[in-house]
Design a protein around this nucleic acid. Structure first.
Lengths: 371, 371
DNA sequence: CTGTTAGCGCATTCAG
DNA sequence: CTGAATGCGCTAACAG
């Protein structure tokens, strides 16, 4: 007699026995209550309560061959950008019965490929993936994944299935145009290591400057070309990448080099923060001597002194709407628009207000969360 | 003949047939290659490759009644603190065959309770949970979860199973003592909505001031008592909580109120950043008129002007070591120390250097990651 | 080292 | 609306 050591947890059969019905009726009562008569339903829920029955999701997934897991691939967990996206995802999944599995691709397409492969092992009910530039192999896997695939936080004409995001190219271009309109002529571009989305923003920057006839490659200031993900396997302090320190350094160098810049478009807000501090330490007047703009529009940009211009993007919405799209498709609703452009917003604030024409906006006073 | 519609994917039986062995041998060859003779192993891996066989993890979980899923509960995804923790977790899970499932408890113990319940449905192989103050019900569930449970990012004498973290009380006290030693007398405490860990830091602050005989409840400045998680279900902009704006406001009010503060200990770094900007806008000299200290030590603290003091905590390590602990236990190694205190570090910088005695430290110049 | 047998717990058939 | 039988794909247990 080699009975298998089971979990000890009551099974659906126990509930069925206690309620005096068949197992399948319990199964149905749990998943589609309206398909079961009220009388049985009641005795079943009673039995469930008495036995403390909880369904075994692994068994359910095996039998039904779908897992109710939504896989989410993000390039980084440390960047606020994607934590906001994930917040949207989690807000969007509320009482849907879906579970979320996050994979961290570390801005590395090979890792992404492997992650996609492993995710497919679990037969996810849907996949949400950041960006639109997957490898050919990744794309093929996603195409034949047999489930909804939502690409987010970028834009493309040719989504795998559906894309919800915005154009980094146009965002970069729009901010650069704002700087030009504000009266700056020598607009530098600050960045660290760049991914495909950063490169698109740079592309927008270049096009704007070219159209204005003031493009100068000398003004593109990159730093730290080593891809950070390469070194993340080992035990290192969280402090290994100092974006703010880099913004500061870039600005100091730019000032020292005497390239005559009068504004910088920073590839992200932390960089901009560092650049601002550099100007403060050198008594450089922002915005009159140098204008500073960031990208992402985190909350401290508005609170800075001077308040800093940035491009607000809809991170939370990307996550939330992706989740809504997943849910409606899983409910059998049609896919609808395959390309959803959420746009962006150029936030014009003091740090790029060369002429001092902007009226001061009051700060919002809203509660927030602590560690 | 009611054959079930399967997935079409090859099964372990297909591989076994093709390799001319029994299914269980394939199973073993895949999981414990050293338990299978080299000859069979080779023909099996060949068959696997030819058929593109991938194991069905749901079936595996059902049959073996353990899922290889490590559940991680964090109170927030937006806070950098926990994204660093998660980065540690992901760095720690590399080629372990384990999967990670993240639950977002939104700083809400009831939600946490529900999440724990749901997590248990999947029979996780281990659970990592933030904080040490679970509800009685949560604690009971975790105790009888039948798997390793690691509590992180806080400290307790009485861990459920194992705790890896540090004492917020002592961290708060240490920073406050630093402020006193630096010569400040009227040290305010700035915070927004407070969780249990923030409260412990406040406790440390109070004790330090009491020991010095300079405690004044008037100096505790809280703001925004509404718990943010309450309102997160609906479609809102990511911008709803402006921590930096709050730090700014708190400082402006403190200055206006004339309580004669000469230093502030901010419950987190973003708050400190806002406070610094407020001082700048009022021409208040930091650190000579007002000292400012934060908590967490994000990278911009070092890059600020003046560089800002903060308490460096080991977020990444908490995640990473928790994962290592899980792995070694899952490998059958003994639990070892049940209480691991990672400590913290008071980073003394310009913003609390009242006497101007600190030597300027060079900024680190390291690459970093962009969005 | 390998195979046989017997489930893991649930949901999909199909028949009432 | 309900139920009985059967299988999802894999692995624990035992025997060789």
């Amino acid at each position: 007699m080699r009975k298998r050591r089971s979990n000890g947890r009551p099974t659906i059969a126990d509930v069925a026995f206690r309620a005096g019905v068949g197992a399948i009726t319990v199964s149905r009562a749990l998943r589609h209550p309206d398909q079961v008569s009220e009388a049985l339903r009641k005795s079943i829920t009673d039995a469930v309560r008495e036995l403390d029955y909880v369904p075994n999701l692994n068994a359910r997934a095996l039998a039904s061959s779908h897992s109710n897991v939504v896989a989410v691939l993000v390039p980084s967990l440390t960047q606020n950008i994607f934590s906001d996206v994930l917040r949207g995802v989690y807000d969007g999944v509320e009482n849907s019965g879906l579970r979320i599995e996050i994979a961290n691709t570390r801005y590395n397409v090979e890792i992404e490929e492997r992650q996609i492969f492993e995710i497919l092992l679990h037969e996810p009910s849907a996949i949400i993936v950041s960006g639109t530039e997957q490898t050919a192999a990744s794309r093929k896997m996603l195409e034949k994944a047999g489930c909804p695939v939502i690409q987010i936080m970028d834009m493309t004409d040719d989504p795998i299935h559906k894309v919800i995001g915005f154009s980094h190219f146009h965002a970069g271009k729009a901010m650069t145009q704002h700087l030009l309109e504000a009266g700056y002529q020598r607009v530098a571009f600050f960045s660290g290591w760049m991914n495909s989305r950063s490169k698109n923003r740079l592309g927008g920057y270049i096009e704007a400057l070219e159209e204005a006839g003031v493009y100068d490659p000398e003004l593109i200031c990159e730093m730290g070309n080593e891809k950070p993900s390469a070194s993340q396997g080992s035990i290192k302090d969280y402090h290994q990448f100092s974006a703010a320190g880099m913004g500061r350094e870039l600005m100091l160098r730019a000032l020292d080099r005497g390239t005559g810049i009068d504004a910088v478009f920073c590839n992200n807000d932390v960089l901009a923060l560092g650049a601002l501090f550099a100007c403060m330490s050198r008594q450089v007047d922002v915005p009159r001597q140098v204008g500073i703009a960031g990208f992402n529009d985190f909350d401290y940009m508005e609170a800075a002194q001077p308040a800093m211009s940035s491009v607000r993007i809809h991170r939370w919405q990307c996550g939330y709407q992706a989740m809504q799209a997943v849910r409606s498709e899983l409910n059998g609703e049609p896919v609808g628009e395959r390309i959803i452009d959420l746009g962006f917003e150029v936030m014009k604030r003091g740090s790029t207000d060369r002429e001092g024409t902007l009226e001061a906006a009051p700060l919002s006073e809203i509660p927030f969360t602590l560690s």
